[in-house]
């Protein structure tokens, strides 16, 4: 169970301060699939960073099974992420000097996972294993980023627009693969997206606007990646 209580986060210096998250409280159940929807600039990525322990909130708490990660030291926070968290970022953030294989290995090794080649193949990257990130298209980089996160076998997976650079067919297959792995490994998924159709796949949908939660609902049935509109 992940529980966030009254999270606030601002950026900027004193004179030019801008509150991005204005008191956010949410509960996310273990093994669930949660989608966060919201307009560009509404603070979705910032919320994801705070929830995943990349950034500390200015105030508020984030409990993972009762432990408040907002109070952890930097080192403990790093150890916490190592053990629990996987990310797929909007901007991919691959290691530029390492080929696809090694980028995925970076994640895999943290989980002692030696079978990461399966994940690379499943995401359609088997031909690209020896390529460097800059030799890949945007969508291919996005899939490497997904492979790396999945190879880490996280207990909570954070995804920031994981299909933003993908065409419909590839996008559906990536989402489908993530869902299948989730069924198998039972990790929690928290996904940010612009695409309201993807929300039909989620159990819980949270709507954000200008740093606040403006709505939340549960889907009675969850569609698969091939059933949703695009």
């Amino acid at each position: 169970m992940i529980r966030a209580e009254n999270i606030r986060k601002s950026y900027g210096t004193r004179d030019n301060r801008c509150e991005i998250l204005k008191g956010i409280s949410i509960d996310i159940e273990d093994g669930g699939f949660t989608v966060i929807l919201g307009a560009s600039g509404s603070g979705k990525s910032t919320l994801l960073n705070v929830l995943s322990g990349l950034e500390r909130p200015d105030s508020g708490s984030i409990f993972y099974d009762g432990e408040n990660i907002a109070e952890l030291s930097d080192d403990s926070l790093t150890a916490f992420r190592r053990k629990n968290i996987g990310f797929i970022f909007q901007q991919y953030y691959l290691l530029p000097n390492l080929n696809v294989d090694r980028n995925v290995k970076m994640g895999a090794e943290l989980a002692g996972n030696k079978d990461y080649a399966d994940i690379i193949n499943a995401l359609g990257l088997s031909e690209k294993r020896r390529k460097l990130p800059r030799e890949l298209s945007g969508g291919e980089q996005q899939r490497v980023s997904a492979a790396r996160a999945l190879a880490k076998k996280p207990s909570v997976l954070f995804l920031d627009e994981p299909t933003g650079a993908l065409d419909e067919e590839t996008g559906r297959s990536v989402l489908d693969y993530i869902c299948r792995l989730r069924d198998e490994l039972k990790f929690t998924v928290i996904m940010v997206t612009h695409n309201a159709n993807i929300a039909d796949m989620a159990k819980t949908v949270i709507k954000m606007n200008s740093g606040k939660i403006v709505g939340q609902y549960r889907n009675q049935t969850q569609k698969t990646a091939y059933e949703i509109g695009w």
């Binding site: 530029p96 000097n97 390492l98 080929n99 294989d101 090694r102 290995k105 970076m106 090794e109 030696k114 020896r130 460097l132 800059r134 030799e135």
Partner: peptide
């Protein structure tokens, strides 16, 4: 886009070599 740097590409990936060791080698080589 950044020039493909042939030096850092495809140094025979040894599956049994730990990631951090590989990273060290590639950092030096580049």
């Amino acid at each position: 886009k950044g020039k493909p740097d042939s030096k850092s590409r495809d140094v025979a990936a040894k599956d049994n070599m730990p990631f951090l060791k590989e990273l060290k080698k590639i950092t030096l080589r580049g």
